[in-house]
Design a protein around this nucleic acid. Sequence first.
DNA 1: TTGTAAGCGTTATCAA
DNA 2: TTGATAACGCTTACAA
Lengths: 360, 360
Amino acid sequence: MARQAGERAVTMRDVAREAGVSIKTVSNVINDYEFVSDATRAKVQAAIDRLGYSVNVSARSLRTGQANLIALAIPDLQMPYFAQLSSLVIEEAKKLGLRVLVEPTLYSREEELNVLHGLQSTMVDGLIFSPLELGQEDIAEFRVDYPLVLLGERVFTNEVDHIATENVEGAKKATTYLLETGCRSIAVIGTHPGERVGSAALRFQGYCEALLDAGIDYDERLVVPSRMWHRVDGEAAMDTLFDSGIVPDGVVALNDMLASGVMHSIQMHGYRIPGDIAVIGFDNSDDSKYLSPALTSISPGLDEVARLAVRTLKDRIDGVQSGERLFAGTDGQEDPVTHREYRQVPSTLVVRESTRVPQA
Amino acid sequence: MARQAGERAVTMRDVAREAGVSIKTVSNVINDYEFVSDATRAKVQAAIDRLGYSVNVSARSLRTGQANLIALAIPDLQMPYFAQLSSLVIEEAKKLGLRVLVEPTLYSREEELNVLHGLQSTMVDGLIFSPLELGQEDIAEFRVDYPLVLLGERVFTNEVDHIATENVEGAKKATTYLLETGCRSIAVIGTHPGERVGSAALRFQGYCEALLDAGIDYDERLVVPSRMWHRVDGEAAMDTLFDSGIVPDGVVALNDMLASGVMHSIQMHGYRIPGDIAVIGFDNSDDSKYLSPALTSISPGLDEVARLAVRTLKDRIDGVQSGERLFAGTDGQEDPVTHREYRQVPSTLVVRESTRVPQA
DNA sequence: TTGTAAGCGTTATCAA
DNA sequence: TTGATAACGCTTACAA
């Protein structure tokens, strides 16, 4: 920590003088160099403690070219999903001796470009980036000359390491589970008509696939779009459904906040959950277990996303190629030429009280 | 950004050679030094662009002794309140040219001590710290030799700069507003019996003061404790109240998540909000406006907390004393000897739909 | 208005 | 096993 103005920080030189050894020896002790005699080590350690020395990170970074710092760029830290992701990334990074600079891009294309280029400069060793505004058409922007790991489902390229979640499969699991528990008229809330990429499109696709597999006819009236995914939007969407005289026996909400609003609408209309209508959400956000009834939801495996993202980035920083990566992996699809990695984290169904039990 | 292994980063020396000037001149251009001829500036800028130069932050930090980095220690990034605070702090810091290292202490006393001492080392210029585990009895731990700004209501000392929110006044405003809108039997949800400091105790105090001022008798049966402040806890607390045959006409929930649960319980019991029972929350969290009805809440002025915290810290880093601080201030109480600052950010009432209108 | 040179605190090379 | 010394890339007196 920077000292107050006036005080001069204790340096290795001071410690060396205090311990009666050379600077290099102090450095050796600090860095746990193997060949230091126990006596010397103890002597130096004592001096360090006495003087309250701690290493100057800037000097070390300058010398080694490594900052032990990574950046995490996300759209909005105030969204529970990204707050959780950030929290997990910070935790995981800590395990590998890395600090994290969180960089909210605040729904601005300019900020996203800013994060990708220039701005970060020599400050960080690499970047974990979850784009929102930039899309497939901006793929050239992602060709950068530093370690970069991409998150999310907006951009697909084999030129960059990429950790994605199972949106299609997750929504399919959700819908299939409703089918297994006896639902036959399943609404989906929160679609984005016209979109081909992004969570909304992929999750809706999963819904459709599940119906198809089950041989259930697709009913357009059960599909309720909603641009925003807040609680009110879910409530409004469900109200709309009821207003048009439709009462489904199951609802797939494309995220948990929508589900919360959906549940509220259902209960305000006098129906029981899950008795009359079962509800399932997506994201398995923290509050889903605090709703009443507690919400069954699809967990996108954010902890695994965080773990893989940080470890992949760390490997890249250390110059490790995919083929020789240090952590045990499953399901990795690697590009043999560029050695970029694309991994999809499996989503899991978290059953709570908003759904009925499967029929034996 | 760190280059891939193998590439050498472009330095000022390279730019100087490319532009045919000295290193110092390049430095002058980078740092917007006043006395550089336009011609030279253009020449250097061109070279910078051509080579894609960006300054090496480590070298600069080493030389200047400033990292332009601050740390923000909070209990849990996944709590909406702290996620919002972090987001605001990052934004405010950016305006002053500072980056933020977010450091969740995860409800661990050890982590909090770790953040205060040692760990940060020379990496950051200062710390904004919102303690949760450390309390008044640990006051000695806060005597550190680097710029520190304290947040929250757990520790009070005139030895450290401190930005607090108006808990007592906020809760008093909330309760008074319910009284003004005709409520006479007002429950309070989420108290922590026995506590003297912390949000719960202070907010409860505000509730009591409002009743006292209005000459309303305090009714112990309307006070429902709850250790946790999640949605389910609010629901359970309200259920308990109903179960014991009590139906208040107003409820002060000690935070918005409690309020959300309270509202749910009320609606499940067939009462109308605000017609039968008015509800008011605390924190003015993002979702309060997405509840139905939208929740009236007390805003603790987090944006102002963030603004003051960052600016106070920045002033300390720059060696400015309270008396000569650069930003316009109101309400600042300063200790004349140590020049530490204690400021309380005013809370405001945000009226939405969960309360009735004041009686003329 | 621009250039020279010293030094920030570390790590790394090499020699002792 | 330890020590002297040269970078790392930048800012800043001071000189020109």
